[in-house]
Simulated scan of single mutants.
Amino acid sequence: MNRPEPENRDLFAIADLAREFGISTRAIRFYEAKGLIAPERVGATRVFRRRDRARLILILRGKRLGFSLREISDYLDLYDANRTQQANMLVEKVDERLGMLEQQLSDIQTTIAELREMRKLAVGEMEKA
């Protein structure tokens, strides 16, 4: 029996989401414990809906982009509330993150240039010997 594509399904088991996103079920339970997702329960079984899946996508994207769980939580809190506030907050946080990454890139480029110069000097000294 073929299962519908994830976007077309209404319900998901924790193992389905873990497999789909390449994360552990423990990670999903961690996000639940932090209040970032709130699956329903049928007995002892967690039942995730499309909304939970969408929130999990946003959580994983936020983590991949370097946002803290607090920042992700703040963003998700606005998800159902005010779209304008959500967009403003996202722009602010993205600008902060871009600034930090651009500074890190500049620092890395400077370090690489310095290391190349040091290597060049060391090679020059070895050739003299």
Rank of each mutant, 00 (worst) to 15 (best):
Q104H: 07
V42N: 13
S106F: 05
R29P: 03
S24R: 08
D80T: 05
G124N: 13
L90Y: 13
E114S: 08
I14N: 01
G62L: 03
A27N: 05
K128D: 05
L36Y: 06
R3A: 11
E102I: 03
T111N: 12
V91R: 15
S73L: 05
T25K: 06
D10G: 14
A44Y: 10
L17W: 03
M89Y: 12
E127P: 00
K34I: 03
T111Q: 15
N88L: 12
E20Q: 09
E125H: 07
Y79H: 14
F21N: 04
D107A: 10
S106P: 05
E71C: 11
R49T: 11
R41S: 11
L76T: 07
L17V: 05
K128I: 10
L65M: 08
V123S: 06
D107Y: 04
E117Y: 04
P6A: 04
S68P: 01
R50G: 04
L105R: 11
Q109I: 04
L90E: 13
G22T: 04
E40A: 10
K63V: 02
R49C: 10
P6K: 09
G99A: 08
L98A: 03
I72H: 04
R70S: 13
A27V: 01
R49I: 07
R51G: 01
F48V: 05
A15Q: 07
D16C: 00
R64I: 02
R119Q: 11
R119T: 15
R119P: 00
V91L: 15
D107N: 08
S106E: 15
R53K: 09
A54Q: 12
G22Q: 07
E32D: 14
Y31R: 02
R19H: 07
E96N: 08
R9D: 00
I28H: 01
D95Y: 04
E102F: 01
A44W: 02
L90H: 03
I108P: 04
N8W: 04
I14Q: 02
G35I: 03
S24G: 06
R51H: 08
I112Y: 09
L17C: 03
T84L: 14
R116M: 03
S73D: 15
E5K: 12
P6D: 09
I23A: 01
I57C: 12
T111D: 09
L78F: 13
F67C: 01
D16F: 11
A81S: 14
L105N: 13
E117Q: 11
M126E: 14
G22S: 10
G43A: 01
T25S: 09
E125G: 14
R97F: 06
D74Y: 03
E92T: 13
I28V: 12
E92V: 05
P4R: 08
L121G: 00
L56E: 05
K63E: 01
A113Q: 13
M1H: 06
P6V: 05
